[in-house]
Simulated assay, not measured.
Amino acid sequence: MGRVRPGPTSRVRVREVSGAAVRDRRDDLATEEPLEIRVAAGGDTRTLAITMRTPGADFELAAGFLSGEGIARAEDIASIAYCTDEDLPPETRYNTVTVHLRGRSLPELPAMDRHFMTSSACGVCGTASLDALHTRHAALTEAAPRGADDHCVQGALPGRALPPVPADVLYGLPGRLREAQGIFGKTGGLHAAGLFTADGSLLAVREDVGRHNAVDKLVGWALMSGRLPLEANLLLVSGRTSYEIMQKALAAGLPMVCGVSAPSSLAVDLARDFGMTLVGFLRGERFNIYAAPERVATEQP
């Protein structure tokens, strides 16, 4: 018999020790399994990535990954399906997704070699990758030249689509995201990415063991529902903000990214280069703005 399709949680037996008390019980864990993302066109198929992910929204993850890498737009995707190759063992069929592209041949994919094997942690990229982004994306605002001393304070102007977001709205976002994390509530072991409007309304949330996978799932949802670019929205991630997350947000047209933890130095560089607002340490009633503060409406003392 074929394997049952994997779910987002897995049940295990644990021995719980609390002081002098010891008991055996069942516990729910976040499932972590590999997902192979393939792309196919004109009779050719190529593996793009193998990432460790939490099963669920796999098609969105694949679509968001392709969108973030500049490989496919919504109109380029003909279909997405789990693998049905008879020569594959049953346990791999729900861990392999093929994105069928319109056209007679595969697009050029030289940049994808670095993604062939990824983990549930965010990838590491250098300044060469940051420079390469300028060949694919324009700044979301009128950004100051790279290297400007006061770039964070003076360099960017708010985009027209996203009005300045009040600080009070930002304060409430982590709580709304946490309330929507159903799988985290059962396991305590997942990251989340949430898409919000300027007034703090939550549009969608996706969870995964990998921060970047959660963002891919969210962007894939937006792509498949015809919502890209997300120029009127902002993104909140439950952990630190990496270069890779900022890259995916840029590709989706998101002008603002917030994180409950710290950003990396390269994430800040990307935000400043492309006029994106980057907020970190969003906890309680405090946060830091690392780039384009004009999109945040604050009361100056």
Rank of each mutant, 00 (worst) to 15 (best):
T84H: 14
S79C: 04
E75G: 12
T54E: 15
Y82H: 14
A111H: 13
T47F: 02
V97P: 02
A62T: 04
M52Q: 13
S67L: 10
E36S: 15
G42D: 00
F65G: 07
P90N: 12
A62G: 13
I50C: 07
T96Q: 06
E86N: 08
A49Q: 14
H100D: 07
L48W: 03
I71S: 09
T45S: 03
G56C: 10
P55N: 04
A74K: 15
A40T: 03
E91R: 07
I80Y: 12
L109T: 02
A57I: 01
R114D: 11
G64L: 05
G70W: 08
S105G: 05
E86S: 14
G43M: 03
P55R: 02
S119R: 09
A62E: 07
L88W: 06
S67P: 00
A74M: 12
R114N: 08
I37E: 08
T118K: 06
D87S: 11
S120E: 11
S67M: 12
R102E: 06
T51F: 00
T118A: 13
A78Y: 07
T54R: 11
G68P: 01
R53Y: 06
A40S: 15
M117G: 06
E69A: 07
T96G: 00
G42K: 01
T45I: 04
F59S: 09
T98H: 05
P90G: 09
A74H: 11
P90R: 09
M117K: 08
I80W: 13
T84S: 13
R114T: 12
L88S: 11
L88C: 11
R102I: 01
L61D: 10
E60V: 00
C83I: 09
R102A: 09
R93N: 05
R73A: 15
P110W: 00
V97G: 08
S67R: 15
I77G: 14
E86P: 00
S120L: 05
M52P: 01
L66T: 01
F116P: 00
C83W: 07
T54G: 10
L101M: 07
L88N: 11
A41S: 13
A63I: 04
F59C: 09
A63K: 01
V99M: 11
A40K: 06
G68I: 00
I50F: 02
P90W: 05
P55D: 06
M52W: 10
F65Y: 09
I71Q: 13
R104W: 09
I80H: 07
T47P: 00
E60A: 14
I37C: 01
I37H: 06
I50G: 10
R46N: 00
Y94G: 02
A81H: 13
A74P: 01
T54P: 06
F116C: 01
I50H: 03
P110Y: 03
R104Q: 13
R102C: 03
F116A: 11
D113L: 07
V99P: 01
G64N: 10
S67V: 07
I50M: 12
S79M: 07
R73K: 12
M52H: 08
L88R: 08
